[in-house]
Design a binder for these strands. Structure first.
Length: 688
RNA sequence: GGGGCGGUAGCUCAAUUGGUUAGAGUCCCGGACUGUCGAUCCGGUGGUUGCGGGUUCGAGUCCCGUCCGCCUCGCCA
C-alpha cells in the first residue's frame, strides 16, 4: 500500500489534462464520509475525512497498487474541494472590477488564441461571462487543463474581475468585464455533446433530438427562461389566491373512470382483481365535494390526464390551476379570476390588460364562427342567407334548402388586390378540411361585382353592399352549408385570412369572457343530448324552466376565458341541489341507477348541505405559452411527450415483466399487426 | 382512424433524368495564432442515406410495406 504523504488534497491526474475529470469522476462519497474509487490500474481508497473551517473536505488517500508511472500529483489544491462559487455568470459588471470571484458553469464556447491566450464563455442559468486565461501567468496545470476545455465541460474558475482589455461585447450584459482566470477546476469533463445549447443553432435542431437530450436542450437560455416563467406563474397564482382566502388542497390521482368526456388513462388494481382506477381528467368532483366539506375557497395546481391525440397546444398530461368558491355567482367568480389574470400579466409582463369584456356564445359564433374568438382583428362574419336566397347560384340555393342551411360571408377590406386567385383557390381546397364545399368569392370594384361568382350575386349587389358595408376594392368570401359547417369553416377561414394577410398585431392582448353557453348539444348520430361544458354545470337561474321544456335553448352559467383566440380557462357555477343535478342526468340519458353508480357520492353530498358554488380551471401550460410567446406546448413542459405519447428521453412507454402483469391480473392481448410493432419498439425508439 | 410534410456524418443541410469513391458547414481531432467573442487560417477523422423488401447492369433518388417526428381533421364533457 502506498500512502500519499499528508492529507490528500490534490488532484490526481495523468500528465494529460483530460484524465483529471475521469479520475475525479471515479470517486464517490460513502455515507460514512469516506470516499472510494476505482482507477483502471489501481484501487484507491480514502478515509480519515476531515472538514476545515470553510466546509471543504480533505482526505487521506491510499493506493492499493503502485501508481502507474504516468500518474502523478500535479497540484496541491484540495481534492474534490470544489472552488466555492461566489457569483453567477450573469451578474458581474464594471463595478466588480478588481474583486476576486469564483464562477461555476458550463463551457459555452472556447476561443484558443494560441500559446498565450484562451477565452472561455462560461455559462450558468444566469448568463455568460468571458473568462480569459493568460497562459504566461497561470500555473502549468491550469494551462494544460485550460487548453483541454471543450464545450459543455463543467468547471469552476477563480480569478480577478477587470474591465475588458479588449473591446467590450455589447451583446452580453456582462460584456464590459472579464474574469482573469487564475485557478481552474474541471468538475466534470463532458463527452462531445450531440446537440449544443446554443441560441444560434438550437431552434433548427430537430425536436426529436432535443427531446431525447432534453437535459442539454434545457440548458439553453430560452428554455431556462421558460422554466423560470412557469415557476413565477405558479408562485403568483399561489400568492394571489392565498391573499384571497383560498386553501391549496390536493386531490387523489387514483380515482374512478367517469362516463362522457375524454378517454381515461386507467390503472389496474392489484388488490381488486379485474377492477381499475382511472387518472383524473380534472379534479372536478373533488373540488365540488370540498365545497360541500366547507372549505369555501379551494385551489390546486394539478396534473390532469386525457388519453386523446395531442396537438401543438395539447398534451395528454397537462396542468391546471384549479379553483372553486362557495357562496358566489357567475360575476363573483369572473371578477376574482379576472383579477388573477390582470395580476399575472402585470407581474410577468408588466402589462395592464384592463377589465376583461364578455361576449355571449351566440355572438361569438355568429360574428367569429368560433367559441374562442380572436379579437385582434376584424373580418367579422355576416349572415346573408336572406339575400342569397334570391340568387340563382346553386351552391347557395342548395345549401339553403338544407335543414339548417345558411349562407355566410366575410368582407375582406382591400381584398380585391390582396387576395390573389391562387390564394382563393387555395382556400376552396383548404376549407374542405372542415367539410365545406368551397369558398365562392367576388370582388367589389367601381364597376360593381367582378370575377368569381359576380354574375350570380350582381342581382343582390345593393343588399350585399349595405349588409356588409362594402367599399370599392373589397372582396367577399362566402360559405354556404348547414349552420354548423358554414359557421365553423368561416370561423377557421377568418383566422387563416388574418394570418395570411398579416392582420394580427402580435403585441396585443385581447382577453374576452365567453358566456351564456347552451347547456346541451344534440348529437344526431347517437340521438341524445350532451353537456356542452360538463354535466355539473348549472343552468342560468332564469333558465331553470327551459331545462326540460327547451333543452336546446337552455343557457348555462358556464364561462370560458379566451385570449387572442386561445382558450386559457373555463368554468361554471355548479348545481348544488340534488334534484336539479338529477334532472340534468336525466336529460343526458343517464339512468337513476347509472347516475347513482357513477356519481352517487356527489348526489349524496349535495343532499347534506351543499353551498352554492362555482369555479374555474386555467390551463397552466397555455398561460405560460402566451407569457413566453410560443405556440408549442412542449416548450413549456420540462419533460414533454411526443404526439404519440412517447417520452423520447426515458423511452416511455415500455414493456413490463410478465410477473408484474400477473400480479395485476392483467393480460396483454395484442392485435396481430401490433405484435410485430411491439417487438420493434425498443430499437425504434433508440434509433437516435 | 384520415390528410399533409419530413427522416442522408454527432448537429444543420446538399446531392441534376436512376449513373464515378454520397458532398458542404458545424462539432470533434491535430497544427498555427497574445484580444477573441457564432474567432480566424491549414490539415484530418467521421456514413447501415430510418428499417425491410422489390424493380434495375446500377437506387439516397423509382415502387411496395413499415417505423419515427412534426402539422392537421376526427377526438379533446
Amino acid at each position: 500500500m502506498k500512502r500519499i504523504a499528508g492529507a490528500l488534497t490534490a488532484f490526481v491526474r495523468f500528465s494529460e489534462c483530460c484524465a483529471v475529470a475521469v479520475a475525479m469522476g471515479a470517486f464517490s462519497h460513502l455515507s460514512d464520509g469516506r470516499i472510494r474509487g476505482l482507477w483502471p490500474s489501481c484501487r484507491i481508497t480514502c478515509d480519515s475525512a476531515g472538514c476545515d473551517e470553510d466546509g471543504r473536505h480533505s482526505y487521506d488517500v491510499r493506493f492499493s497498487q503502485k501508481l502507474r508511472p504516468s500518474l502523478h500529483l500535479v497540484h496541491s489544491g484540495r481534492f474534490l474541494s470544489m472552488l466555492k462559487r461566489t457569483h453567477t455568470c450573469g451578474e458581474l459588471r464594471a463595478e466588480h472590477a478588481s474583486q476576486t470571484v469564483t464562477l461555476c458553469g458550463w463551457v459555452n464556447t472556447y476561443r484558443d488564441q494560441g500559446k498565450g491566450l484562451i477565452f472561455i464563455d462560461l455559462r450558468d442559468r444566469d448568463g455568460l461571462t468571458q473568462v480569459v486565461f493568460n497562459l504566461e501567468y497561470v500555473a502549468g496545470d491550469v494551462v494544460t487543463a485550460g487548453r483541454g476545455l471543450r464545450r459543455e465541460d463543467v468547471i469552476a474558475v477563480t480569478g480577478k474581475v477587470r474591465t475588458r482589455a479588449g473591446d467590450p461585447n455589447p451583446k452580453l450584459p456582462t460584456g464590459e468585464i472579464e474574469v482573469v482566470g487564475d485557478q481552474l477546476e474541471v468538475l466534470n469533463k463532458a463527452e462531445t455533446p450531440p446537440i449544443l445549447p446554443d441560441e444560434y443553432e438550437a431552434e433548427k435542431i430537430a425536436e426529436e433530438t432535443r427531446l431525447k437530450y432534453r437535459y442539454i436542450d434545457l440548458r439553453r437560455k430560452r428554455m431556462q427562461h421558460i422554466l423560470r416563467t412557469r415557476h413565477r406563474v405558479t408562485k403568483i397564482a399561489r400568492d394571489y389566491f392565498d391573499e384571497h382566502g383560498f386553501t391549496e388542497i390536493e386531490t387523489p390521482f387514483l380515482i374512478k373512470t367517469t362516463p362522457e368526456g375524454a378517454r381515461d388513462f386507467i390503472v389496474p388494481s392489484r388488490m381488486y382483481p379485474g377492477q381499475w382506477y382511472a387518472l383524473p381528467q380534472s379534479p372536478q368532483l373533488f373540488k365540488q365535494i370540498l365545497m360541500v366539506a366547507g372549505c369555501e375557497r379551494y385551489m390546486q395546481i394539478v396534473r390532469c390526464f386525457r388519453d386523446e391525440d395531442p396537438r401543438a397546444d395539447r398534451q395528454a398530461e397537462f396542468s391546471q390551476i384549479d379553483l372553486e368558491m362557495s357562496f358566489v355567482d357567475r360575476d363573483d367568480v369572473m371578477a376574482m379570476m379576472g383579477g388573477f389574470i390582470q395580476t399575472l400579466w402585470k407581474q410577468v409582463l408588466g402589462m395592464d390588460i384592463g377589465d376583461i369584456p364578455a361576449i355571449t356564445y351566440r355572438d361569438a359564433m355568429e360574428r367569429y364562427g368560433i367559441d374562442r374568438p380572436d379579437l385582434r382583428f376584424g373580418l367579422e362574419i355576416t349572415d346573408v342567407s336572406d339575400h342569397a336566397a334570391k340568387t340563382e347560384f346553386k351552391v347557395f340555393t342548395n345549401a339553403l334548402a338544407k335543414d339548417t342551411g345558411v349562407v355566410k360571408a366575410i368582407r375582406v377590406p382591400g381584398g380585391a388586390e390582396k387576395l390573389t386567385r391562387k390564394m382563393t383557390d387555395g382556400y376552396s381546397e383548404w376549407i374542405k378540411t372542415f367539410k365545406a364545399g368551397g369558398v365562392p368569392v367576388v370582388k367589389y370594384t367601381d364597376k360593381g361585382f367582378e370575377a368569381g361568382i359576380a354574375k350570380f350575386v350582381s342581382p343582390i349587389e345593393k343588399e350585399l353592399v349595405e349588409r356588409l358595408g362594402l367599399e370599392v376594392g373589397d372582396s367577399v368570401l362566402f360559405a354556404a352549408d348547414t349552420y354548423a359547417i358554414a359557421t365553423k369553416a368561416l370561423g377557421e377561414l377568418r383566422n387563416k385570412l388574418a394570418r395570411d394577410l398579416d392582420l394580427i398585431d402580435e403585441t396585443q392582448w385581447k382577453f374576452v369572457w365567453v358566456i351564456d353557453f347552451p347547456m346541451f348539444e344534440f348529437d344526431e348520430e347517437t340521438q341524445r343530448w350532451y353537456s356542452l361544458h360538463h354535466p355539473f354545470t348549472s343552468p342560468r337561474p332564469d333558465q331553470f324552466d327551459q331545462l326540460e321544456s327547451d333543452p336546446g335553448g337552455c343557457l348555462s352559467t358556464g364561462y370560458d376565458l379566451v385570449v387572442n383566440g386561445s382558450e386559457i380557462g373555463g368554468g361554471s357555477i355548479r348545481m348544488h341541489q340534488p334534484h336539479v343535478q338529477q334532472k340534468v342526468f336525466d336529460m343526458l340519458g343517464l339512468s337513476k341507477e347509472e347516475a347513482k353508480m357513477k356519481f352517487g357520492f356527489l348526489l349524496d353530498a349535495l343532499k347534506y348541505g351543499a353551498p352554492p358554488h362555482g369555479g374555474i380551471a386555467f390551463g397552466l401550460d397555455r398561460l405560460v405559452m402566451h407569457l413566453v410567446g410560443t405556440d408549442n406546448i412542449r416548450d413549456v413542459i420540462a419533460f414533454p411527450k411526443t404526439q404519440t405519447g412517447a417520452d423520447l428521453m426515458i423511452q416511455a412507454p415500455g414493456s413490463v415483466a410478465p410477473e408484474q402483469l400477473e400480479e395485476l391480473h392483467v393480460q396483454s392481448v395484442l392485435p396481430e399487426e401490433a405484435k410485430q410493432l411491439h417487438e420493434h419498439v425498443p430499437e425504434v425508439v433508440d434509433r437516435g
